[in-house]
C-alpha cells in the first residue's frame, strides 16, 4: 500500500494505492487519524490506484468517517475503479458517502458545501 497526502489550501487530498486489506489498513487508518489529530477536517480520498479493498479497508474508512464527523469534518471519495467500486456497492458505501469521478469534482463539492 502507498499512502500520499497533498494539502490543497483548506483541504487534504489523500491518495491510497495498492491494497487496503487486513494487513495494510491499520497503517492507512493510523495516518488518517494522525491527520485528523493534526487538525485536518476536509478530506478527498483519491482511489484511482487502489486495486483491492476488503471489509478491513471499509472498516478503516468507516472508523475514519465517524471520527471526522465527531469533529464536524467531511470525507469524500474520487476515482473508484472496478473491484473497489463493486465492494463499495455491495456494502452500501455508495449511498453512505459522496463519490466523484475526479478529484477536481470532489474538491469543488467540498468547497461549495463549506
Amino acid at each position: 500500500m502507498k499512502f500520499d497526502t497533498k494539502k490543497d489550501k483548506d483541504l487534504t487530498v489523500v491518495s491510497i494505492a495498492g491494497r487496503m486489506d487486513a494487513v495494510t489498513t491499520p497503517e492507512a487508518e493510523d495516518r488518517l487519524a494522525g491527520l485528523i489529530d493534526a487538525g485536518e477536517r476536509s478530506f478527498v480520498v483519491d482511489l484511482q490506484q487502489l486495486d483491492y479493498i476488503s471489509s478491513a479497508g471499509l472498516r478503516g474508512i468507516l472508523a475514519t468517517a465517524k471520527k471526522l464527523k465527531a469533529e464536524r469534518g467531511d470525507i469524500v471519495f474520487a476515482n473508484l475503479q472496478g473491484h473497489v467500486n463493486e465492494v463499495f456497492k455491495i456494502s452500501g458505501f455508495q449511498s453512505l458517502f459522496k463519490i466523484f469521478d475526479s478529484v477536481d469534482a470532489a474538491v469543488n463539492e467540498l468547497r461549495r458545501t463549506e
Binding site: 476488503s54 471489509s55 478491513a56 471499509l58 472498516r59 468507516l62 472508523a63 468517517a65 465517524k66 464527523k69 465492494v87 455491495i90 456494502s91 452500501g92 449511498s95 453512505l96
Partner: peptide
C-alpha cells in the same frame, strides 16, 4: 447496509461479503 453514518456499525460487513 442502508443506515446513516452514525447508524452504521464498524463490524459485520465481512460475513455479508462471504455470503454475497
Amino acid at each position: 447496509l442502508t443506515g446513516t453514518l452514525s447508524e452504521r456499525k464498524i463490524g459485520g460487513l465481512g460475513i455479508h461479503f462471504v455470503k454475497t
